[in-house]
Simulated scan of single mutants.
Amino acid sequence: MILRLRYIQRVRDRRGKTRLYFRRPGHRSKRLPDESDPGFLAAYNEALAAAKPEILRPREPPRTLAGLIDFWMRSARYTALAETTRATYRRILLDIQKQDYANAFVTDFQPVYVRRILARHIATPAAANNRLKILRVLFDHAVSEGWRPDNPASAVKRHKEKAEGAVTWSEEQIARYEARWPQGSVQRLALALLVYTGQRRSDVVRMSGADRRGDLLEVRQQKTGARLLIPIHPHLAQELDAAPASGTFLQTPGGKAYTANGFYMRFRDWRAAAELPEGLSPHGLRKAAARRLAEAGCTTHQIAAITGHATLAEVERYTRAVDQEKLARSAIERIKL
């Protein structure tokens, strides 16, 4: 007689013999004796009463640094990053996975090991600091997932960077560029958008007439996701009036929108045509915009409301520089005869 009991599965082996298993969804399986065995019902009842749910854990990679990188790149935090930020992180992360220390277990890392990793980039402090930033994020993820109790990168100090990033355009350089490119040209429009909105090139190339809100320009920053409403400066308004009526403000000769990198390369040619030195970039005009606001007496919060900086540390560099100049001039005035 064949019994009809729940969770019983019959499996025929290669010799043709039927074997019985107690298999309940979410529980561990158990081999049962044959139905003709006097102990079958007792074994079945025992399995039915004692079955405990099997703890199902998501599959995760080996707990090495390389495995942690794969794990984090599948996380919600990584996928929530802006596309350009993900591309930058991915490039560095894939390079880290090629290194000899990538196969070390996450639990083996100590602050001294993190410092040794950064020491490999001592000639390029900015690159070292980028890796430190990413390692901090990775080990934070390791802590939150229970891979280790602490973050070994949090106690490691950043390398001192000699340079301050992109060179800030001076007023003389801005004036020389404007003298080369007349009002109504795409070159002049590019400068106006950069210096009168204080935005990154990745945001400037996406701006269009659809973003105008009366005397305001709405910006959704690609890097941070921040939404900004920026008053349109009269000089910018003049250039926007001459901009294309449809599509983005900045367009290629073929009428297409620029990519961020494509715009950078074209802007480099425009800068060279104005006989301005190498090193002056679109980002330098973003810094010039912050400098102008600081020189006008704007507070750090007011400047950040335009530039969209997530923290005030960067903005404070501009206000400190302006305050230093004002104090220095005031000090000299006091000792003039």
Score class of each variant (00 low, 15 high):
250 L>K: 00
300 T>H: 08
282 P>Q: 07
243 A>K: 04
256 K>S: 10
326 K>Q: 14
83 E>S: 11
211 D>R: 10
336 K>T: 00
281 S>C: 08
241 D>M: 00
214 G>T: 04
174 I>T: 12
141 H>C: 09
244 P>I: 05
331 A>P: 04
150 D>E: 09
74 R>Y: 05
210 A>H: 07
14 R>D: 14
168 T>Y: 05
167 V>P: 04
210 A>G: 11
41 L>P: 02
315 V>E: 06
76 A>Q: 11
98 K>C: 02
222 Q>A: 14
155 A>H: 10
152 P>V: 07
24 R>W: 05
22 F>Q: 07
276 L>M: 12
43 A>K: 14
106 V>W: 13
190 A>K: 02
69 I>L: 10
157 K>H: 15
78 Y>Q: 11
205 V>S: 01
115 R>A: 08
242 A>N: 09
277 P>S: 03
70 D>P: 03
150 D>Y: 15
41 L>H: 00
118 L>R: 01
337 L>M: 09
328 A>L: 14
185 S>A: 06
150 D>N: 09
27 H>A: 12
131 R>K: 11
326 K>E: 09
74 R>C: 14
248 T>I: 03
80 A>V: 08
119 A>G: 13
279 G>M: 13
207 M>H: 08
142 A>K: 13
81 L>C: 02
219 V>I: 15
288 A>D: 14
21 Y>L: 12
24 R>D: 08
167 V>K: 13
161 E>M: 07
226 A>V: 01
333 E>Q: 15
303 I>A: 01
42 A>W: 10
63 R>Q: 12
162 K>L: 13
45 N>E: 15
136 R>E: 08
187 Q>F: 04
224 T>R: 00
129 N>T: 04
55 I>Q: 12
170 S>F: 07
146 G>H: 02
309 H>A: 03
283 H>G: 12
109 F>G: 13
333 E>C: 08
315 V>I: 11
178 E>N: 10
77 R>K: 07
113 Y>W: 05
313 A>Y: 10
21 Y>N: 04
72 W>A: 03
108 D>W: 00
300 T>V: 13
247 G>K: 03
93 L>S: 02
247 G>I: 01
35 E>R: 06
149 P>D: 05
222 Q>D: 05
34 D>W: 06
270 W>V: 12
11 V>C: 14
265 M>A: 11
23 R>A: 07
272 A>M: 10
183 Q>D: 04
202 S>E: 14
227 R>S: 01
184 G>R: 09
284 G>R: 13
192 A>E: 10
200 R>K: 07
128 A>P: 00
252 T>H: 06
234 P>D: 07
35 E>I: 13
81 L>W: 00
79 T>K: 06
246 S>T: 14
112 V>S: 13
275 E>Q: 11
69 I>R: 05
11 V>R: 15
201 R>K: 14
314 E>S: 09
80 A>F: 02
48 L>A: 12
273 A>E: 14
98 K>G: 05
6 R>S: 15
334 R>T: 01
145 E>I: 08
51 A>D: 05
188 R>Y: 00
276 L>G: 09
76 A>H: 01
228 L>G: 00
229 L>P: 04
280 L>G: 07
313 A>F: 01
13 D>R: 13
7 Y>R: 10
58 P>N: 02
